[in-house]
Amino acid sequence: MISVQNLHKKYGKHSVLQGINVELKKGMIAGLIGQNGTGKTTLIKCILGLTEFQTGDILIEGKSIQAGPEYRNKIGYMAQMGRYPENMKLAQLFEMMKEIRDVKNLDEQLFEQFALKKIEHQNLGQLSGGTIQKVSAALAFMFNPEILILDEPTAGLDPVASEILKDKITQERENKTILITSHILNDLDEIASHVLFLQEGKVLFFETINDLKEKNGQQKLGKTIAEIMLEKEIKS
């Protein structure tokens, strides 16, 4: 479980996150959305410990992330279009990660479904953007983490791979807390249970997708979000 408590983050004088409070529980797939520059990436980076925050705290299973890096054993992170060491073989990357994480009960389903075994002796520098994305996805799920943070997971994936990944995400839902950012709202509509909408560094709403659709009388998440954003613009 992820508990973000009154989180403030500034870059110099610019305040990016202004008092975020949110509880992500087991069984949730939360879609993190918001316009560009509203602090989505910063929030993810704070949870992952990639950047320090000024005030507030983030608790993972009740323990502050500031206590040390061990909490990251519980997290699988899929970065957006990560760049890997060019001359490292795919097999070496997985070997290294396995040595770091030291987990016995591995989940190699995506590794097999994406047929990564076939190319495990290729250098990572030779792989296409889509294949790199498959590698990142397989790595994120491999160590059976309780929390998954997926940054634009389907971007760059071909339709087949994209469906495989979406199936995997929904399949893992019961035992995990999953946070996804995506600009493809149709994808979120299919897999997410909740929407966490950020605006100017604050949580505008955090609701289940069904509640959101009901309130706005829409069938699709894309239209619901578009309507809400339009309303906000008219008000301001």
Binding site: P69, Y84, P85
Partner: peptide, 17 residues
């Protein structure tokens, strides 16, 4: 500079900075 993405990935693992 080239390794920025990979350093970021390592930083998300349970290892001290």
């Amino acid at each position: 500079y080239q390794s920025t993405d990979f350093i970021r990935l390592l930083l998300t693992q349970p290892i001290q900075r």
